[in-house]
């Protein structure tokens, strides 16, 4: 009798134990071409915020591309198809990465003149004699300061900014060159901009999804930058081209808000969303824009910031070592 009771209880406990422990991990999701296509399309459907502002009919895109997914297609074919699907978004932040390949939409600058040659600037304008403060190089010529910030991915410290702004405090104008700066850490752009303002400034609104529906958004979130340290209040000219993208695009927006600044060159490349990542069931990594940005006047800046003065290189200019955009900016400030 007692033995039977023990057995019953032991069985009960063991059953609970094994029932509880039977699930050690989860099943792998399907990773056939159709499943991956549907996953990618469905994920973007829920998370991509700019269908409306880019006027993209994502359902129609699904119908267009779905029929081209074949069960036996090889990875390279699927990769190419998914990229074609993603390229319809015309977003330089949208990237698909497999173990062997990476594809990003480059149309935001490929069809535009670069209008920039760093070697020409170093050789013919700075004469290979310039100062460096962290990631930036700069020089003062005829009382006009020139600074080149190649990438906001390279961090600049407050100490480096102190050195730079202390050096140029007596100048009569500042040329900030961000051509070919494809963005990086927004904090660097904010840090730099904080030296150019004397009061807390509303610089943009961020629009962030709050649900999977295409119109599910939080209220646009205002974003302010506060001044930091001594303010540089002299005339400023920002030099831009289409490769000024992402954080650089935001920086151009900030500069456009300054009453003492103007922008010269070409429109910036856009890319005002914040990139997030996602890993698909077949291991490919997707980068996508998870947010978008509006100017303080609630204008969409996804397609770039327009310069106050559009200037393009003539073909012979670059060959002759000239940078007409830089020269125009320098002449403008010299005459101030």
């Amino acid at each position: 009798m007692v033995k039977n009771k023990i057995k019953t209880v032991a069985c009960l406990l063991l059953t609970l134990f094994f029932l509880g422990g039977c699930k050690k991990t989860f099943n792998q999701p399907q990773s056939n071409p159709e499943a991956v296509f549907n996953e990618l399309w469905g994920f973007m459907d829920k998370h991509y915020p700019m269908f409306a502002i880019k006027e993209i009919d994502w359902d129609k895109t699904y119908a267009q591309y779905k029929n081209r997914v074949k069960p036996g297609m090889v990875d390279a074919e699927l990769f190419s198809l998914l990229n074609q699907l993603l390229f319809t978004l015309k977003d330089g932040h949208v990237t698909l990465m497999s173990a062997t390949d990476t594809a990003t939409y480059l149309g935001f600058y490929k069809n535009y003149p670069l209008n920039f040659n760093l070697a020409n600037i170093k050789n013919n304008y700075l004469f290979n004699d310039f100062k460096k403060a962290g990631p930036v190089m700069y020089k003062i010529v005829s009382n006009v300061a020139y600074i080149y910030y190649a990438s906001f991915a390279q961090n600049i410290s407050d100490a480096e900014l102190d050195i730079f702004f202390n050096d140029i405090k007596a100048t009569k104008g500042l040329i900030i060159d961000v051509r070919n700066n494809t963005g990086g850490n927004p904090a660097n752009a904010e840090k730099f901009f904080s030296r150019l303002i004397n009061q807390k400034t509303l610089v943009k609104y961020e629009v962030i999804k709050n649900g999977p529906g295409r119109n599910d958004f939080f209220e646009p979130k205002p974003f302010y930058i506060s001044p930091n340290g001594q303010t540089y209040a002299k005339p400023i000219i920002l030099l831009t081209n289409r490769l000024c993208f992402s954080t650089c695009n935001d920086f151009a927006l900030y500069i456009s808000l300054l009453p003492n600044a103007q922008i010269m060159g070409n429109p910036t490349g856009g890319g005002a969303g914040l990139p997030y990542n996602y890993i698909l069931a077949n291991g490919w990594k997707l980068q996508y824009s998870a947010t978008y940005t509006l100017s303080p006047k609630m204008r969409n800046i996804e397609n770039g910031i327009q310069p106050n003065r559009t200037i393009n290189f003539e073909p012979q200019d670059e060959n002759n070592g000239k940078d007409i955009i830089l020269e125009t900016a320098f002449n403008t400030l010299s005459l101030e």
Partner: peptide, 8 residues
């Protein structure tokens, strides 16, 4: 939000 793949 990050992946459908299980991490173990």
């Amino acid at each position: 939000n990050f992946s459908q793949l299980p991490y173990s």
